[in-house]
Computed example of a mutant assay.
Amino acid sequence: MPLSEYEQRVLEQMERALESDDPRLATTLQRSRRRSPLRFVLAGLGVVLGLLLLVVGVSANQTWLGVVGFVLMFAGVATVFAAPRAKGPQGTVRADGSVAPHTPSSRTARPAKAKSGGGFMARLEERWDRRRDQGR
């Protein structure tokens, strides 16, 4: 069921508010997470090999082999669900092409917000009420 024009406008306003309030979170949510098929193949092989070692270790009464098999299976499953690492140098690129690590001063400074008595949920409710009142 498609959204109405009003719902689309409200959604766009919420997106813009998110981008202005927390640009780092907005870029994280917009970024697509591409995972290599090789990652899944290797993880699957690890799980199958780990299961095989576990069964052989139990049947041969070799506890250490069963433990190695279990660890290998666990590592295969963890590899599938782990977030991919960022590629390339991390930090601020200087004019000469070198990369400097991030420091708090190199990030864009955000103005300090005055703390309200209710915290995060109170601010959300207050903003919601303001938007609802603007729509009238």
Rank of each mutant, 00 (worst) to 15 (best):
M1K: 06
L3G: 01
E7V: 03
Q8N: 13
Q8D: 13
R9C: 07
R9S: 11
R9K: 13
V10E: 06
L11G: 07
E12A: 15
E12Y: 04
M14C: 14
R16T: 09
A17W: 07
A17S: 12
L18H: 13
L18Q: 11
S20Y: 03
S20M: 04
D21I: 12
D21E: 10
P23H: 04
L25G: 01
T27D: 14
S32Y: 11
S32K: 15
R33L: 13
R33F: 06
R34D: 07
S36R: 12
V41S: 07
L42G: 08
G44R: 04
V48A: 15
L51A: 12
L52R: 12
L52E: 10
L54I: 02
L54W: 07
L54C: 09
G57Q: 05
S59A: 13
A60Q: 15
N61G: 03
V67C: 05
F70K: 00
F70W: 06
V71G: 11
L72W: 03
L72Q: 12
L72N: 08
F74R: 10
A75C: 10
G76E: 02
G76N: 03
G76Q: 01
V77H: 04
V77W: 13
V77M: 13
T79W: 09
G88H: 05
Q90P: 00
Q90V: 12
G91V: 02
T92P: 00
V93I: 10
S98D: 08
H102Q: 03
H102G: 00
A109I: 10
R110K: 15
A112C: 05
K115D: 02
G117Q: 10
M121H: 08
E126L: 08
D129W: 09
R131I: 12
R132L: 11
G135Q: 13
